[in-house]
Write a protein that binds this DNA or RNA. Structure first.
Length: 164
DNA sequence: GCCAACGTTGGC
DNA sequence: GCCAACGTTGGC
């Protein structure tokens, strides 16, 4: 069995929030229109990987929860829907340009870990993409030990080394 | 609302 | 293949 990988996935809470996912328990992560992000989903993500739910364009921005990848990547149907805001007229059904995956709710962190808090912990989180200047990628890999550190910062029940 | 940092597009 | 123009992201 392959080693579990860890991710960070952004969503604007005005569009889709951790509360929405908590209520629905599972959702389609549609609308990714960036090649790097798509390649992560298509080429590297695996079922049962864990991902942080990150609220972008929020006050404050930060990590608010954990979800689990529950599907392989498959073509995002919104790219073919002219009524969708994600419609891409250049994508062809024979060779879909954009992929998506399905995610399931795991937990809402007892305490949000804000972007500022991540920056304040840069010693423990060296190399974390989310705190790199100008980093806009909406799907990012997260190192396993960074994932554990951040779970601790958020008071996660998933973390055996939970801090108080 | 501003704007820095990217990513994409298209003329050449 | 270069690069200017344009569009988007996302923190502030």
């Amino acid at each position: 069995m392959a080693t579990r990988r860890y991710w960070l996935m952004k969503s604007e809470p005005d569009v889709y929030s951790i509360e929405d996912l908590k209520r629905e328990q599972r959702c389609y992560w549609e609308g990714i229109r960036n090649y790097q992000a798509r390649n992560f989903m298509r080429d590297a993500m695996q079922i049962d990987d864990l991902a942080f739910f990150y609220h972008s364009n929020a006050k404050p921005p930060g990590i608010v929860g954990v979800m689990r990848i529950v599907s392989e990547a498959y073509p995002d149907p919104t790219q073919f829907d002219p009524k969708s805001q994600y419609f891409d007229p250049k994508s062809e059904e024979k060779s879909p340009r954009w992929s998506m995956i399905d995610v399931a709710f795991v937990e809402q962190l007892p305490r949000q870990v804000t972007l500022n808090e991540l920056r304040d912990s840069e010693d423990e989180l060296q190399g974390l993409l989310a705190i790199r200047k100008g980093q806009r990628l909406s799907i990012q890999p997260v190192e396993a030990d960074h994932f554990q550190v951040i779970l601790g910062m958020g008071g996660s029940s998933l973390n055996p080394r939970r801090s108080s």
